[in-house]
Amino acid sequence: MADFIQQLVEGLGSGAIYASLALALVLIYQFTGIVNFAQGELAMFSTFIAWSFVQAGVPFWLALILTLAVSFLGGMAIERIVIRPVEGAPELTLVIVTLGLFILVNAAAGWIWSFLIKDFPSPFPESALHLGGVSLNYSTLGVLGVVAAVMGVLYALFRFTKIGLAMRAVASNPASARLSGVRVGRVLALGWGLAATVGAVSGVLVAPVLFLEPNMMGGVLVYAFAAATLGGFDSPLGAVVGGLVVGVAETLAGAYVGAIGSDLKIGVPLAIIIGVLLVRPQGLFGRAAVERA
């Protein structure tokens, strides 16, 4: 039992990381209808920026805040420079553009920081918290805490602020929002900025586990896609729940299903994606159109 709880918490820890990248995917999908294949690479790039700050002697938490700020501005800039010109283009064009961005960002990171793996510091203590036979790593608890804080901030932004209301209006009906005086272009840029920021959190949290290198986020992106598909691409809450479920499923399958073990557990997200698309394509929390004509 103690072992099971431990696996569960570990699963939630990885799940929280998938959840933040999935949330980034969902944010952009909601505002622009674009599935951003480059989201993981942007997160990786942000993580390198954090690493550079830390190398330069900046304390970790300050480095994190600076990185989030840079990522926010970077996300807005990408929307302006790369996405705005192809706004409203056919879906395939948009997919190709984000794949191009993927390759560009990946190559740029390799060119700037090289493809050699780097140690990325964990801000949390190495030790574990012992609770009646269960030992919980502070690093896992820390990840859960950071992701919970990010979700809380986003929730408050969307629920309680005027700009959050405008963002939800744009996600729902951009033309109508425009008629109410909402500057939709700014909202879209803001959406990309927020997504890049949330994605950066996932990169910084996963780097101490995986080592930092330009291809670090490839696997994480697959899990994030599984999470977003499971939760529903149009539901931020779904992305979070989906991420946690995927993380737990992956960890438990790796631990308890002998045939899967740690080698095959990358198959878990794929199985989830296919299963969801077959049974409930809009995902657990996705909207199956509540609109009435």
């Binding site: 209301l165 405008a166 939800r168 009906n173 109508s176 109410s180």
Partner: peptide
């Protein structure tokens, strides 16, 4: 031009944006 997932009151508040 309804914002379908937003509440009635939120729809009105978008008008006052």
């Amino acid at each position: 031009g309804t914002f379908a997932p937003l509440t009635v009151e939120e729809n009105l508040r978008v008008g006052a944006y």
